Amino acid sequence: MKKITLVRHAKSSWSDLSLRDHDRPLNGRGRRDAPFMAKMMASKGWAPDALVSSTAKRAFTTASHFAQALGQEPGAIVKEERIYESDSATIIHLISNLKEEWEHVVFFGHNPTFTNVANLFYKDDYLSNLPTCGIVEIEDTQAVNWSDFAPPTAIVTTIHFPKQYF
Rank of each mutant, 00 (worst) to 15 (best):
30 G>Q: 02
11 K>R: 11
128 S>I: 06
88 S>E: 14
18 S>M: 11
76 A>F: 04
44 K>C: 10
20 R>L: 12
49 D>F: 04
58 R>W: 01
142 Q>V: 08
27 N>D: 15
134 G>F: 05
39 K>F: 00
91 I>E: 03
12 S>C: 12
150 A>C: 07
114 F>G: 03
156 V>Y: 01
161 F>N: 05
123 K>C: 07
81 E>C: 00
154 A>E: 04
124 D>W: 07
28 G>R: 13
94 L>G: 07
150 A>H: 09
23 D>C: 09
100 E>Y: 05
89 A>I: 07
95 I>V: 15
137 E>R: 10
89 A>P: 04
10 A>N: 06
138 I>G: 01
20 R>Q: 12
145 N>S: 13
60 F>W: 05
4 I>G: 10
79 K>M: 11
108 F>N: 02
40 M>E: 13
5 T>N: 03
166 F>C: 02
7 V>S: 05
34 A>V: 02
120 L>C: 12
48 P>M: 07
136 V>T: 12
59 A>F: 00
105 V>M: 09
80 E>L: 09
36 F>W: 06
145 N>I: 00
4 I>E: 10
162 P>C: 08
135 I>T: 10
82 R>F: 08
19 L>C: 11
94 L>K: 07
86 S>C: 15
146 W>N: 05
142 Q>W: 04
1 M>G: 15
140 D>W: 07
70 L>Q: 06
68 Q>Y: 09
124 D>R: 08
6 L>M: 10
73 E>I: 00
69 A>H: 04
15 S>C: 08
11 K>E: 12
81 E>K: 14
53 S>M: 03
139 E>D: 11
36 F>A: 09
157 T>R: 15
108 F>D: 00
80 E>Y: 03
91 I>N: 03
4 I>H: 06
98 L>S: 11
77 I>L: 08
96 S>H: 15
164 Q>G: 00
125 D>A: 15
52 V>C: 05
67 A>R: 01
119 N>Q: 13
57 K>D: 00
135 I>C: 07
162 P>V: 01
101 E>Q: 14
61 T>H: 08
41 M>E: 11
52 V>Y: 02
139 E>A: 13
154 A>R: 04
68 Q>P: 00
136 V>G: 04
142 Q>K: 13
1 M>H: 13
30 G>K: 02
24 R>P: 01
118 A>N: 03
126 Y>H: 15
116 N>P: 00
19 L>F: 11
41 M>D: 03
159 I>A: 02
109 G>C: 09
131 P>L: 11
85 E>C: 06
97 N>K: 13
133 C>F: 01
18 S>C: 07
42 A>S: 10
148 D>C: 08
53 S>R: 00
57 K>Y: 02
60 F>R: 05
98 L>A: 12
145 N>P: 00
70 L>K: 04
